[in-house]
């Protein structure tokens, strides 16, 4: 885990990490969130709607932004203020995602950074993008 202090952070500083989406992740997210929608749980239903298999929860994918801020940038000293995210393309079990973020603003007076982040799949297609506001405590 990174432990950047506010002073150690700078505009254009970046971080990235890779995650493989598994069936277990979808099942755990279902358990945590209570979202039992069949698009995420029933392969046949997902196929009947034109998808190749169960679609990963958009919010499961977006939860990787929590890891980006809380573990990588700024890391240990993070307190997440907001995440505004778009779900651009569907994500499926077996996809390998790369989560990337870069600091676009550093607001000294409130010790807050703004991170522009993206998540791309193994075909390097963007599946999500986000604007993250994180305090550095």
């Amino acid at each position: 885990m990174k432990e950047y202090s506010f002073d150690e952070l700078h505009i254009d500083q970046t971080a990235s990490f890779e995650v493989k989406i598994t069936e277990e992740m979808l099942d755990k997210f279902c358990e945590i969130s209570g979202d039992i929608n069949p698009l995420h749980r029933d392969e046949e239903f997902a196929k009947s709607k034109g998808f190749p298999g169960r679609v990963a929860y958009g919010m499961l994918v977006a939860s990787l932004y929590s890891c980006l801020a809380g573990v990588h940038l700024p890391g240990k000293n993070c307190i997440l203020h907001s995440v505004q995210s778009d779900f651009i393309r569907p994500v499926f079990i077996g996809d390998t995602l790369v989560v990337r973020g870069g600091i676009t603003e550093k607001n000294e007076s409130v010790r807050q950074i703004v991170i522009k982040a993206t998540i791309c799949n193994q075909a390097n297609r963007k599946v999500s993008k986000a604007r993250i506001e994180a305090g550095v405590i």
Binding site: S82, N107, E108, S109, V110, R111, Q112, E133
Partner: peptide
Amino acid sequence: LSHIRLVVAIEKKFDIKFAF
């Protein structure tokens, strides 16, 4: 949180900086 948003918006609008 809204206080942080106010501070950042005021800084941008007036092109000024406050101390922490």
